[in-house]
């Protein structure tokens, strides 16, 4: 089954032409820019470019459900941060008066919370946050979908990244889908014994999580032990690892890397001088 972490063979230029190192640079630049920028006007083009690349790479649309799922799971911190953006002094680029125009606000005169609620500015911030998350995930999915882990590992080895770090990347990538299938299996096995989490009683929720948590912990411990053993058997940790491939970049790779790194430097300068990307 497809997952956000699975590579699939394809014929797009992202699969066949670009070097993993180039894709790594592109992804890292997007992650850094998304971390810096707050303004949706800057973040939207990043997301749009990611979506175009996803279309070119023929990434299955259902993988993007992960964005919805992750946003759904993080609704509480998102809402908490959004309602905390109601004060005008938070906005340095947007018109503070417009930004602090309240839609639904309250004053909390204790714990230093002051004004909380929804304003035009907080909604603008929220839109930027969602867009930033979607952009990073989209580029991440495109990167993982078009780049085999062995190519990523070899590139990291060629870049002289310590073998233990590369191994952790490799193992995480390989075992996340495996662990996901084990979680599904445990959940199904318990469902067949009548287990469910349908209760609002927190004590019951805790008790009912044990049939999932205990087997999962046991299986995880077993897998960690087996992987440790299997890696040691294969000589992991012996010392210097030989990279299987060289880092040879085509002119297109070099051009893209220069453009992305140049773009990143320009974004830093623009942010420092003109507050570009800030709100």
């Amino acid at each position: 089954m497809d997952s956000v972490f699975s590579y699939r063979k394809g014929t797009s230029f992202l699969h066949t032409t670009l070097h993993p190192f180039t894709k790594m640079v592109m992804f890292l630049v997007v992650v850094i820019l998304s971390g810096l920028w707050l303004d949706i006007r800057y973040l939207l083009p990043l997301l749009a470019t990611g979506l175009v690349l996803a279309y070119i790479a023929r990434v299955p649309a259902k993988l993007f459900l992960f964005i919805v799922l992750a946003l759904g799971l993080t609704w509480f911190p998102t809402v908490r941060s959004t309602v905390a953006q109601a004060r005008p002094e938070y906005f340095k680029v947007l018109d503070p008066e417009w930004a602090s125009t309240g839609i639904l606000t309250i004053n909390v005169p204790f714990l230093g919370l002051d004004r909380l609620g929804l304003t035009y500015g907080s909604l603008y911030w929220l839109a930027g946050r969602v867009c930033r998350f979607a952009a990073v995930v989209t580029w991440g999915i495109v990167f993982l979908y078009t780049t085999p882990i062995s190519d990523i590992a070899n590139t990291l080895y060629a870049l002289r990244v310590p073998p233990s770090v590369v191994f952790v990347v490799q193992i995480t990538y390989k075992f996340i889908p495996y662990m996901a299938s084990i979680i599904n299996q445990i959940q199904d096995a318990q469902k067949l014994r009548g287990w469910n989490l349908r209760t609002l009683n927190l004590v019951k929720v805790f008790k009912r999580s044990l049939p999932l948590a205990n087997p999962l912990m046991r299986r995880t411990a077993m897998i960690v032990e087996q992987v440790t053993i299997a890696s040691q058997i294969r000589g992991f940790g012996s010392g210097k690892v030989t990279p299987l491939r060289d880092l040879t970049l085509s002119w297109l790779d070099k051009l893209i890397i220069v453009l992305f790194i140049g773009g990143l430097i320009f974004a830093f300068i623009a942010m420092a001088i003109w507050r570009a990307g800030m709100i």
Binding site: I149, Q170, K174, Q226, S231, R234, G235, S238, T242, L244
Partner: peptide, 23 residues
């Protein structure tokens, strides 16, 4: 649990590469 790489060829090479042997 004994397979670490994404192609059969690379996985066979995993052990010798860990030993730091010449390519």
């Amino acid at each position: 649990v004994q397979i670490f790489s994404l192609t059969v060829g690379d996985d066979v090479a995993f052990g010798p590469a860990n030993l730091g042997l010449p390519r």
